[in-house]
Write a protein that binds this DNA or RNA. Structure first.
Lengths: 355, 355
DNA sequence: AGAAGTTTTGAAAGCGCTTACATTTAATGG
DNA sequence: CCATTAAATGTAAGCGCTTTCAAAACTTCT
């Protein structure tokens, strides 16, 4: 019952030493109590906890980190923040992190063009315990450093060719396959495909799924209908517009390999005077929140984004706990979400082509 | 030119001492060079920088923090992540922070029900240099502690009644006023208003703008048409549905005081068999990215969200630099964005009411 | 009661950095 | 050329915590 309201009111923050004094123990013991160390006498523990509460003690994170403790911070590298895709994943991550009492520090990749800055910020500076990489476009640059240091990380919706990374992804090929089949079943044979950058594994897989489905349905793959893309809405818009204005025999359906480019495609299609899905069907991939809010509601392949974030975060936390677990790959199921943007092969097709 | 590839390959990370050795100086000097201290001889500075580069030295953040340096981390408290509102603001924040070489650590308020945890995480743990609070619902709980400690923070899209906080907001009253006037000019007189929680200053201000406009137009304010809300889509949906099913004399326009609830309202309106804007006009507030993507495109009052984020971040950084600047309030202009969700007083109105 | 554990604790050594403070070196002036 | 002042650098003391290491306090068992 030491009352240390002594004359020193210079000290700003309550330190572990204050708690030690107030509870008549040593700093070491307080630290043990706080870290849940087993061999502390019940009564001591209580005394310490009481003092902690009474003084409003909160551990100083930098000090703890420096001394070798856990910072309970993980780095979250995202490409940007202004679309639902990232937000939804982040939401899942945040939930999983929250229940483990971790916080994410945010790194946006657009501002880290090279390896340097990002590496410096996230890894070498000793703050984060692990890293979550959301759909990074470029990975070769720093993945090696990460592995070299045995620094825990997991890739979300992106794959490392070496198979040495922990990754959470979804059944991209299968999803695209089903989407394509769906379109074919509706009677479409001329289907345009807007692909993502082929540096991104998911873009390759989705393209593959598309081609496989076409092949399996006995429809020849027409390379002219495979449009170069980058998962951006603007690109979806431009590439679609170019296609529709090319005057060549038009597609009756467009498979945009992510929702964002699908939104762009929708704009372009409408601007060219076609209606969706009467003239041209559009299908996307991801099922971001907006997809059910656009008009017409977008038929798309759902990736369980929030779940992916959650799974990834848990996976990371697990690795942080046991640094030597072997790399693991977690592939979650996609699901075709049928809404209003796809229709049967357009009857009025001919009328349109004359226009 | 000291080559210190000595036999000790035990050390994992390069420390300031390594750099000191390699450059034939002391740790203190290295630290000075790194922090841009003025009185270091040019040649010394060069030698140090060269060693830094050669060894790939990166400062250890916790150590730096602990020793009293800058962590270059600011806390970002957001209500959630899965809507464009927060994402857009965050995007602006991130940009401003990036150019000052700061990173945000993310705190989502849904997981910090009381003051305790959040306070502990963000302030007392000594990691962050300042705090950015995005539209916090509750602030009384920790604002006092912040001020007491003279901890730099700025509120975004939320105001502190005491006028003692730094805040970045927009012309909420004025924006709502103009939106309402616009509706009135279109011929509407029965306008429903879905308000936000009145704990949020913006919600009060928007309501006030609505009432003021009505009054100035000589239209009596009908309390029955002011619907309780909370800025959530679900709420906008439910409250609108209830209103439309109440059978009482229906509104011809709905002013949802944020876009999210406007989206909810749109759903409800359509589900009740009305069309927008032919039967019922809808106007929102915020202009989140989705607003231009929904159908029909939402007429709304734009808050410069990204700019608000940017301004707030700069303001915070400024306060971190000069801790004693007086509280400042920065009110940015809103702008009425006319799109497709509002139309003139419906001619076919009577037909509908009979249905 | 004394040996042989076990459980509990405290003292003290850092973690890697910043920052007085002290000291050395260079520059200036008479 | 030496005092005087300014510039440049090194020494050392922490920042608040975790974690050996070793000692103290109990138990248990002959």
């Amino acid at each position: 019952m030491v009352d240390d309201n002594s004359s020193s009111n210079k000290r700003r923050t309550v330190t572990i030493a204050d708690v030690a004094n107030a509870s008549g123990t040593s700093g070491a013991t307080v630290s043990r109590v706080l870290s849940g160390y087993e061999f502390v006498k019940e009564s001591t523990r209580n005394r310490v906890m009481e003092a902690v509460k009474r003084l409003g003690y909160v551990a100083n994170l930098p000090a703890r980190s420096l001394a070798g403790g856990r910072s309970r911070i993980i780095g979250l590298l995202v490409p940007n923040l202004d679309n639902g895709y990232v937000g939804t994943i982040a939401q899942g991550i945040d939930q999983a992190l929250a229940s483990a009492n971790y916080d994410p520090i945010l790194y946006t990749s657009h501002r880290h063009p090279g390896k340097e800055t990002f590496y410096a910020n996230a890894i070498a500076n000793g703050l984060t315990e692990g890293l979550l990489l959301v759909a990074p476009q470029v990975l070769t640059t720093y993945l090696d450093s990460l592995r070299e240091r045995n620094f825990p990380y997991v890739l979300i919706d992106q794959t490392d060719a070496t198979e040495n990374s922990n990754v959470v992804e979804s059944t991209n090929r299968q999803g695209a396959y089903e989407a394509t089949q769906y379109l074919v079943k509706l009677g479409h044979t001329r289907i345009a495909f807007i692909r993502g950058a082929l540096t991104v594994q998911s873009a390759k897989d989705r393209l593959q799924g598309f081609k496989d489905a076409l092949e399996d349905c006995g429809i020849p793959v027409c390379e002219d209908l495979i449009l170069e893309g980058n998962y951006q809405q603007q690109n979806g818009y431009e590439t679609t517009k170019t296609l529709l204005q090319s005057g060549e025999s038009l597609p009756t359906a467009i498979f945009a390999s992510n929702d964002l480019s699908a939104f762009g495609a929708m704009d372009a299609v409408r601007e060219c005077g076609f209606s969706i899905p009467e003239d041209i069907s559009i299908i996307g991939f991801d099922d971001v929140p907006q997809s059910s809010m656009v008009y017409p509601k977008l038929t798309t392949v759902r990736q369980p984004l929030e779940l992916m974030g959650k799974v990834a975060a848990r996976m990371l936390l697990e690795r942080i706990g046991c640094p030597n677990l072997p790399p693991q790959r977690n592939t979650l199921d996609t699901q075709l979400i049928i809404r209003d943007s796809c229709g049967p092969y357009p009857a009025q097709r001919d009328r349109i082509e004359q226009a």
